[in-house]
Amino acid sequence: MIKSMTGFGKATAEYGDKTVTVEIRALNSKGADISLRLSSGLRNYELELRNDLSKQLERGKIDLSIFVESNTVEAPIEINTTLAKAYHVQLKKLALELQEPLEDSIQHILKFPDVLKGERKETDENEWNVIKACVNDAIKQLNAFRDTEGKSLQKDFEDRLGKIGIHLEEIKKLDLHRITAIKDRIRNNLADVIGKEKIDENRFEQELIYYIEKLDINEEKVRLKTHLDYFIDTCKENSPGRKLNFISQEIGREINTIGSKANDAPMQKFVVLMKDELEKIKEQASNVL
Rank of each mutant, 00 (worst) to 15 (best):
M1A: 14
I2Y: 07
T6K: 03
A11K: 04
T12M: 07
T21S: 13
R25L: 01
N28T: 08
A32L: 07
A32F: 03
S35H: 12
S39K: 08
L42G: 10
Y45D: 05
E46I: 12
L47H: 06
R50L: 06
D52Q: 13
K55W: 04
L57G: 11
E58D: 13
G60Q: 09
G60T: 05
L64Y: 08
S65I: 12
E69M: 09
E69Q: 15
A75L: 00
I79P: 04
I79Q: 01
T82M: 12
A86G: 04
A86S: 15
Y87R: 05
Y87C: 06
Q90G: 02
Q90P: 00
K93Q: 15
L94Q: 06
L94G: 02
Q99A: 12
E100Q: 14
P101Y: 01
D104H: 13
Q107A: 15
Q107R: 11
H108V: 14
I109T: 12
K111N: 12
V115F: 02
L116F: 10
G118H: 02
E122A: 11
E122F: 01
D124V: 02
E125D: 14
N129R: 12
N129T: 09
I131A: 03
K132C: 06
A133W: 00
C134K: 07
C134V: 12
V135H: 10
N136K: 12
A138C: 04
A138N: 04
I139P: 07
Q141Y: 09
L142E: 11
F145I: 01
F145V: 04
D147H: 07
D147S: 13
T148I: 05
G150H: 06
K151G: 14
K151C: 07
S152P: 00
K155Q: 13
D156N: 14
E158P: 01
R160V: 15
L161S: 13
L161Y: 02
L161F: 10
G165K: 14
G165D: 13
L168Q: 10
L168P: 06
K172D: 08
L174I: 00
D175W: 11
T180P: 00
D184I: 08
I186K: 11
R187M: 11
N189T: 05
V193Q: 02
V193H: 01
G195E: 10
D200C: 14
N202A: 15
R203Y: 06
R203E: 10
E205A: 14
I209G: 03
Y210L: 13
Y210S: 03
D216M: 02
I217S: 07
N218Q: 15
E219G: 03
V222E: 09
R223A: 08
K225I: 01
L228K: 07
Y230F: 15
F231S: 10
N238L: 12
N238P: 08
N238R: 11
S239F: 03
S239G: 03
S239N: 15
R242M: 08
L244K: 14
I247K: 07
Q249R: 14
Q249M: 12
E250S: 06
G252Y: 02
R253H: 07
N256A: 14
T257I: 06
I258E: 04
I258A: 02
G259L: 05
S260G: 04
K261A: 06
P266R: 00
Q268G: 02
V271C: 05
D276C: 00
E279A: 02
K280W: 09
K282R: 15
K282H: 06
A285P: 08
A285W: 05
L289W: 00
